[in-house]
Amino acid sequence: MEIRSYIVPFVLALGVHAAVLALLSTHWMGHDEPQRKVPRHIEAQMIDLTALARREAEQAHIAEERAREAEQAQQAERKRQERVAAEQRRQELAKQQAEAETKRKARQEAEKKRQKEQAAQRAAEQKRQAELEAKRKAEAVERKRKAEEQARRQEAEVKRKAEAAAKAAKERERKQAQAEAELKQALAREQKAREAAARQASQAVIGDIQSYIQAMLQNGWRIPSTARNGMEAVVTIHLLPNGEVDQAYIHTSSGNAAFDNSAIQAVYRVQRFPRVADIDPILFERRLRKLSVKFRPEGLRW
C-alpha cells in the first residue's frame, strides 16, 4: 500500500522535470534559429558580354552612318578615327577584358569565398548538425537512460511489486499451508481419536459379538459321546452380512470324526447369528466375514 502511494508524486515530479526540460531546450534552440533562417549571401556582379557587343555594334552603325554622311571628307579622319576607335575598342576591350577579368576574378573570389563560406556554413551546419545529432544522441541517450532508468525503475518496481506480491502470495500460501497443515493435523488427531474410539468401540462390539457367537454355538453344540477332554477342532465359518452361515468347514481336525462333525453341526444348527446383521459393515468385513471357532470341550467326564 505504501509503495503505491509514491506512484502519483513520482509521476508528477517526472512531469515537472519534463516541462522544465522542454522549456530549456527551446531556449537553447533559439540561438541557432537566425543562423539557419537568414543565411549570408555574396552579392555577385553579373557581366553580360553579349550586351556589350550589341552596344559596340550600334555605335559602329552610328559611326558608319556619320561616315557615310561625311565619307569622302573625312576618309582620313575616319580612318584615324577608325584606328582610334579600334584602339579605343581594343583598349576598351582590353579594359573590358581586364574588367571582366577582374570581375571574373572577383567573381571567382566571391565564388571561392562563397564556396568557402558555404563550406564553412556547411561545416558549421554539419557541426551544428553533429552537435544537434550529438545533442539528440545525448538526449536520446539521456532519454534512453532515463527510459531505461525508468524502465529499470519500473522493472524494479514491478519486480519489487512482483516480489512483494510473490512474497505476499508465498506468505499467504505459507499461512494457508500452515492452516491446512494444522487442519490436517487436527483432522489427523481427530481421525486418530476417532479411530481409537472406533477401535475401542469395535473392540467392545467384537468382544460382545464374540461372546454372543460363543453363547449361540454353545447352545448349538451337541457334544458327542466320543468327545474327550483335550480334543480340539477348529472350524472356519464364513458368515453373510445378515448373520447367516455361508459355509463352515474343519480347519484343524480333532482326529475324531464324530467330534469334527459335531462342531460343524453346531454351526449349521445355529444357522444364523441375527445380531451379526447389526454390526457395522466395515467391522463385519474386517472381523466377522470369516472367523474361527475352536471347539475345545472342558469339564467332560473324560
Binding site: 457367537i213 454353545q218 447352545n219 448349538g220 453344540w221 451337541r222 459321546s225 472367523l291 471347539f295 469339564g299
Partner: peptide
C-alpha cells in the same frame, strides 16, 4: 483395517452333552 486384520477366534468349551 487391513493391516489390523486379525482373525476372530471364538472358543467354544461348553455344549449340550446330548445324544445326536
Amino acid at each position: 483395517s487391513m493391516m489390523a486384520r486379525a482373525e476372530l477366534v471364538v472358543e467354544v468349551t461348553q455344549g449340550v452333552e446330548a445324544p445326536t
